[in-house]
């Protein structure tokens, strides 16, 4: 077994995906390392979000999707198992826009643990506090846990979404453009949070902001028309890309 296989948290081999007749991914292969941040970049429609969504089988929810190839998470092929709930517990997700439930901050974060059957008040309190702390939002909300989460600013809401994701104690967090709806300062807070989170979690982030990819990620994959054009250490991708198409994209010459 070589080094990359040993440390790969997620190993994708020959993944192709079709929306009905339309092919969106063309035999994508990629090893995602544990406790690292992997950024997926590329122009709109290149397949990076589609790819991200295969990692916790979110695409199962769309009619007519057909997937071939293997996605192995912790040595288990996720498309061969039927336990999607278990998979999504292990692989959490944060979306482009904060999507909190219309309930209190506390209830939002406790939602997942409660659904898993945790009823003990003390235990729930502990999980909620730890998760909010982990998402670097505790100090801002600790005195208003019972008020509506929808009353928070966009940046705060997004960090509560991250708290809600980590309340499930996942191993992997998928982020689909998590800061595209946020102001610059909130964006930097979330980026700082990502740097903290990677000590414990494996993070895969889709971003349109190339400076963000350069700042937060260890490795970067460049997608174009459903294929991976280049996958390398982030520094290489942005300072000395090997493929002309990557060069053209990161320097803003097309896309």
């Amino acid at each position: 077994m070589n080094q990359s296989e040993e440390t790969a948290k997620i190993s994708v081999k020959d993944l192709s995906l079709f929306y009905g007749d339309k092919q969106a991914l063309y035999s994508v292969s990629l090893d995602i390392e544990e406790k690292k941040v992997t950024a997926l970049i590329g122009p709109s429609g290149c397949g990076k979000s589609t790819f991200l969504r295969t990692l916790n089988r979110m695409n199962d929810l769309i009619d007519g999707v057909k997937i071939t190839g293997d996605i192995v998470v912790d040595n288990e092929d996720i498309y061969k198992s039927n336990d999607v709930i278990k998979l999504r517990t292990k692989v959490g997700m944060v979306f482009q826009k904060p999507n909190l439930f219309p309930m209190s901050i506390y209830d939002n974060v406790a939602y997942g643990p409660r659904a898993q059957g945790i009823k003990n008040k003390k235990e729930l309190n502990k999980i909620v506090e730890e998760s909010l702390r982990g998402a670097a939002i505790w100090d801002e909300v600790k005195d208003r846990l019972k008020s509506s989460a929808l009353g928070l600013s966009g940046g705060q809401q997004q960090r509560v979404c991250i708290a809600r994701a980590i309340a499930m104690k996942p191993d992997i967090i998928l982020m689909d453009e998590p800061t595209s709806a946020l102001d610059p300062i909130s964006t930097l807070k979330v980026e700082e949070l990502i740097a903290q989170l990677k000590k414990e979690y494996t993070i895969v982030i889709v971003t349109h902001n190339m400076q963000q990819a350069a700042r937060v990620s260890d490795k970067t994959a460049f997608f174009l028309s459903g294929e991976i054009i280049e996958y390398d250490v982030t520094n290489n991708v942005f300072s000395n890309p090997k493929d002309q198409r990557t060069e053209d994209y990161v320097t803003g010459r097309f896309g």
Binding site: M210, Q211, A214, F238, S239, N240, P241, T246, E247, V250, T251, G252
Partner: peptide, 9 residues
Amino acid sequence: EQPFATDLR
């Protein structure tokens, strides 16, 4: 411009 790649170099 936050240049990358050849531009940055």
